[in-house]
Design a protein around this nucleic acid. Structure first.
Lengths: 203, 203
DNA sequence: GTATATTTTAAATGATTGTTTAAATTTATC
DNA sequence: GATAAATTTAAACAATCATTTAAAATATAC
């Protein structure tokens, strides 16, 4: 009844995630997924009804993965400066671990935002984070520049994510090989921390 | 011999650019392009030999378009602070005028960097810009934080390009409609100018 | 104005797409 | 261990893909 079932379903899901992340929805064929999972082509539709349905499931997971670890940090009871540093570090590690994730999310949402459902509770969680309260208190007592969470968060995240999303361009543009880029990215990470803190914290 | 020729070829090129920018290489079919240009499907291959060749031509143009207006500013004889402001403004206008351009470039280079030729003279032009000299002089006399062009340029560009590339995510995440996002982006633009100048210029 | 070269067309090419079918196999239930 | 349910398989489906063909239409050359 359900012995190897979850295994097969999960194998397809994991294979599909790998392929979708690398090639995008349009660049991925059902046969690519079946081959990556080393399973029969018909099983994709047996378990997930269609390529589109499978993609939507995976996209939801990927979007949660993108926000989840950041959320934990945003809610930690540490000072803002440390928090910014941890967010940047976390972003950095994520981009190294999953280099396709952010460009994948942005590209798919850019091409077809309407199909990727708005019932994401993660979005609400990000809006109602403890960092928001910290910022509001900081602004009130004059230690933080008067800004909203939605202005601050992208400033923290854009630096690291931008250079990794555009990794190939930056490598080409500034004539770096793989290890030179790695060193460069580390430098850039520290600049971002310092720059954002400089701007945000009115000490 | 060559009456309506250039017209047809250019019509296809322009149509292809629109479709490729919107749907990406994988998401675009030869029929999409023919339909957009309102021409027979066979003409794409008659003028450009293949979808791939047509794409490569257009990608080269798009990459130049991305760097060209910035290059002009980088070489202007104005002080660094003004220059940063103009780069950010220029980026901002580009993202409004061509919202698909940057995410298109990054996504295509991310998926298949090797096929997109390294003979881009624009890259060299960016590396050898007048701003580089300005920075070196500023660093030497202590008015500019000790950094290289390759560290500074992404800091200037990431802010605006990031929020526009992730426009749909930001709209969803912070519950903004189109006009709220426009206002938000303007705010963000000014924050970026101030933040980068604050960090870079050691007055 | 005829001959030649170029451009455009409709139709077809074979390969690949997502998806379905129905039979074969494995697993669970009694 | 027989029966039923769930899973896996090979094969096929129609649709669409990029590309090619060869004829028709148009422009150019003399």
């Amino acid at each position: 009844m359900k012995c190897g079932t979850e295994k097969s379903e999960d194998r397809i899901r994991e294979a599909a995630k790998r392929v979708f992340l690398k090639k995008g929805f349009d660049g991925t064929t059902s046969r690519d997924i079946a081959k990556e999972a080393d399973m029969n082509i018909a099983l994709t539709n047996y378990y997930f009804r269609s390529k589109e349905k499978l993609f939507l499931e995976i996209f939801k997971d990927v979007l949660e993965e993108y926000f989840q670890s950041m959320l934990t940090i945003l809610n930690k009871d540490i000072d803002i400066k440390t928090k910014i540093s941890e967010i940047v570090d976390n972003d950095f590690e994520m981009m190294k671990r999953e280099p396709d994730l952010v460009i994948f999310i942005m590209n798919e949402m850019h091409k077809a935002p309407q199909r990727l459902f708005p019932d994401m509770s993660v979005f609400r969680q990000v809006r109602e984070t403890y960092l928001k309260k910290q910022i509001e208190e900081g602004v009130a007592n004059g230690t933080v520049r008067p800004m909203l969470l939605e202005n601050i968060l992208p400033l923290i995240k854009c630096g690291v994510e931008f250079i990794f999303m555009g990794k190939e361009i930056h490598k080409e543009l500034f004539m770096m090989n793989e290890e030179e880029f790695a060193k460069y990215a580390e430098e850039q990470k520290e600049h971002i921390k310092a720059m954002v803190c400089n701007y945000l914290i009115l000490a």
